[in-house]
């Protein structure tokens, strides 16, 4: 039997949902793999939703919203872009970024809606089933995805995403436009750091470990791990439990 992907769609109420309806009214056919969740605005799609879906083994997630400038809520779709970019950047760490897509579909674009869905469905078919869709779960991948989700939910990344447009497109508190390039560098570093930190937290949640253990497990330079441990200690998320054979052992002390 050929692979029939499970695809989740988030459609904004005003443009895309109407566009999808129009496809129906016009009887334009597209693959039946998509299931739709209606939201009022594409900006409503919390990165958390996408990760949750992927963790459930859903093969692809598509978000559609109004074309830039046409948002019923003025600028919600621009915010959607930022959140999408965050998720995309995070997922690229697992080469899963192609499993998600953001598209603009207006209320008059029934045709386009069908095309976009067809195209995306084909894309997912080509990618094959989600590595998390089978019965035997790849627990390591799941943990990585979990770490990405935690990063996406972290205060720091949400704060940066929430402020990005304001400071890089309008003006920051000093009345200057913060250079996009500089912001991207900072943001990319933050994404990377928060991902690794959450991987550390998840790993330590299972059992306490030394920097060396973590470095081996995560295949990351031990110096970098140490720096992350220091930050996590500063956040009161990990603590040193003991020193065994010259190796301080850390444990996760977060309340979950």
């Amino acid at each position: 039997m050929s692979f029939e992907p499970r695809i989740l769609g988030f459609l904004c109420n005003w443009c895309s949902y109407a566009g999808a309806d129009l496809a129906g009214v016009s009887r334009i056919q597209y693959p039946p793999n998509i299931r739709v969740i209606r939201v009022m605005c594409s900006g409503r799609v919390d990165p958390e939703f996408i990760f949750k879906a992927l963790k459930l083994g859903i093969d692809g997630v598509i978000i559609t919203g109004c074309h830039p400038g046409d948002c019923h809520y003025i600028e919600g779709n621009y915010e959607a872009v930022k959140k999408f970019e965050l998720v995309q950047k995070l997922l690229s760490k697992l080469n899963m970024e192609k499993r998600i897509r953001l598209e603009w579909v207006s209320a008059s674009e029934g045709n386009r809606f069908a095309e976009v869905i067809t195209d995306f469905t084909n894309q997912i078919k080509e990618l094959g089933p989600s590595p998390l869709s089978g019965k035997d779960l790849d627990m390591e991948l799941m943990e990585k995805l979990e770490a990405l989700e935690m990063a996406a939910e972290s205060y720091r990344l949400r704060a940066l995403v929430g402020r990005e447009r304001k400071i890089t497109e309008q003006e920051n508190v000093y009345g200057e436009k913060y250079p996009k390039e500089k912001f991207d560098n900072l943001f990319d570093a933050a994404i990377n750091n928060e991902y690794i930190r959450n991987r550390i937290l998840l790993s330590l949640e299972k059992n306490p470990k030394s920097v060396k253990d973590l470095a081996t497990q995560l295949n990351i330079d031990s110096k970098e791990i140490l720096n992350h441990i220091l930050v996590l200690k500063g956040r009161n998320q990990v603590a040193m439990e003991d020193i065994i054979e010259n190796q301080p052992i850390y444990l996760n002390v977060m309340e979950r």
Partner: peptide
């Protein structure tokens, strides 16, 4: 107006 962007942005 209930667009919900603040909810998905709230840090």
């Amino acid at each position: 107006k209930g667009c919900g962007t603040c909810g998905s942005t709230c840090t």
